[in-house]
Every structure is written in structure tokens, then in C-alpha cells.
């Protein structure tokens, strides 16, 4: 359902969409049901000529059931949601599949710098390709990202991956993704980071291996200035 509005382009995007759909369905069902009962009761017991209002304390067993039965049913729904959420959390956040490639993601007011491995396929070497506001990845490849913030809190958000991870100054946070569909999509900052936060947008290019190799061949390494780069402390 969500994919109808926003493509799902990572290996775990569908799992997260399924969890959202589960929560939406269960919560939506109870919302519609309770509102329907509520409106029905309001209409049925509206003011009528010659009928006095009565006050119910709700202490009798047959009245309490109106609370306790839905309460236990909602708790059963909660168990489904919890099991689904823990399962997705474990697979996305607690698991770290072996990386085929590593990309360094650096947030700052108000731009993203992406450091790609150069032709040697290894990050933090002289042939690294550092580009502002453009992330180039290969479809079907498992990436680890090393997320940093140069100044304040940011949040690395790739909606088509259903990925969102805070970036914290002074820390290097590791996460992963595996693109599953080629295309060009938005990257955004999802943490208010100053007056230019709304302008802190980038693009992700998910390419076939051939397209990626062609892109890589057209790049030249740019050494990152170190003066304003914080000391890295790997988590």
C-alpha cells in the first residue's frame, strides 16, 4: 500500500511497510469501531421529550464489560504489533550483514558529503571520491554507511530505503542498506539542524554495476580538508 505512494528500494523496505500496514490496520479498525459506537450511542440516547437523564456509575459487571472486553482485545492486538516491531528492529538495526562496500556519510549545516570508495574498492584511501549532495550506489550490493556530523545533530533519511538514522557530532555510527531497484531518489535531513534545514537535500543514484563503473570512471579524487573535520571515534 505504502509503495503505491513511495517506491520501496531497499531489502528491508517491504518489512517496514508491512509493519506500518499492520499497525495502520489494527489501530484503524479500533478507531473506526469506537467512533462508530460512540456516534451510535450519542444519536440513540439523544435528548428526548419526557425522558430524564440517568447517571450510571459503571460498577456493575455487565457495564464494566464495555471497558474490559475491548481492553483485552486491544492488548492482543498490541502483542501482534510488538512481535512485528521487534522482528523488524532486530533484522534492520541489530543485524549487520557483511558489507560488499562502505560509504562514508558526513552531515553538516546544510549539506551531505558522501565519500565513495574509488577504483580500489576500499574506503579511506587516496582514490576516494568525495561528492557533495550526491550518493551513488550499486543495486544488489550490501553497503555499510559510516555516519558522521560535523557540527550539530542531523538525521540521514532515505525515504525509499525506509532508512532514518541520527548523526551525532563526535561519533561515527554504522548502519547498512542494500538497494534493490535502480533509480534516482531523495535524501533528506530529518532532524531540525538550523535555519537551512529545509534546504539540506541530496540525491541518491541507484545504478546497475555497469552504470556505476561508468560514473566512477568519470570521477577524480578530492582530498577532504582535515582542518574542520572532527576526530573520528568509531562506535
Amino acid at each position: 500500500m505504502i509503495e503505491h505512494f513511495l517506491p520501496a528500494a531497499s531489502s528491508y523496505a517491504q518489512d517496514i511497510d508491512n509493519l506500518f500496514t499492520l499497525i495502520f490496520t489494527l489501530v484503524g479498525f479500533w478507531l473506526v469501531l469506537t467512533e462508530a459506537v460512540f456516534i451510535y450511542l450519542i444519536v440513540k440516547f439523544r435528548k428526548k421529550d419526557g425522558q430524564k437523564a440517568e447517571y450510571y456509575t459503571g460498577e456493575e459487571k455487565h457495564l464494566k464489560r464495555w471497558i474490559t472486553v475491548p481492553h483485552f482485545l486491544v492488548l492482543i492486538c498490541d502483542i501482534f504489533i510488538l512481535v512485528g516491531a521487534v522482528n523488524v528492529w532486530y533484522n534492520v538495526k541489530q543485524q549487520l550483514p557483511e558489507a560488499d562496500e562502505i560509504v562514508r556519510v558526513i552531515g553538516q549545516q546544510w549539506a551531505w558529503t558522501f565519500v565513495h570508495a574509488g577504483p580500489d574498492g576500499t574506503i579511506d584511501t587516496d582514490d576516494d571520491i568525495a561528492i557533495v549532495d550526491e550518493l551513488h550506489v550499486k543495486v544488489g550490493t550490501t553497503y555499510h554507511f559510516k555516519l558522521e556530523a560535523r557540527d550539530v545533530l542531523h538525521s540521514f533519511s532515505v525515504p525509499v530505503f525506509r532508512l532514518k538514522q541520527d548523526a551525532v557530532p563526535g561519533r561515527v555510527i554504522t548502519g547498512w542498506f542494500k538497494p534493490t531497484k535502480v533509480g534516482e531518489h531523495d535524501v533528506q535531513c530529518a532532524e531540525i539542524c538550523g535555519i537551512g534545514h529545509g534546504l539540506m537535500a541530496a540525491r541518491i543514484f541507484i545504478e546497475t554495476p555497469e552504470e556505476h563503473a561508468a560514473w566512477l570512471a568519470g570521477q577524480r579524487p578530492i582530498a577532504l580538508a582535515s582542518a574542520n573535520t572532527p576526530q573520528r571515534v568509531e562506535d
Binding site: 557533495v132 537551512g196 534546504l199 574542520n228
Partner: peptide, 18 residues
């Protein structure tokens, strides 16, 4: 303001696009 090492330029570039 397009160089990855231009910390302040990278801050100004998106503001100019406002």
C-alpha cells in the same frame, strides 16, 4: 561552495538557493 572541504561554503550554497 561545492567542494567537500568548504565547510562554510557548503552552508551558504543551499541558502543562496532560497
Amino acid at each position: 561552495g561545492e567542494h567537500p572541504g568548504d565547510i562554510t561554503g557548503l552552508r551558504m550554497a543551499p541558502m543562496s538557493r532560497a
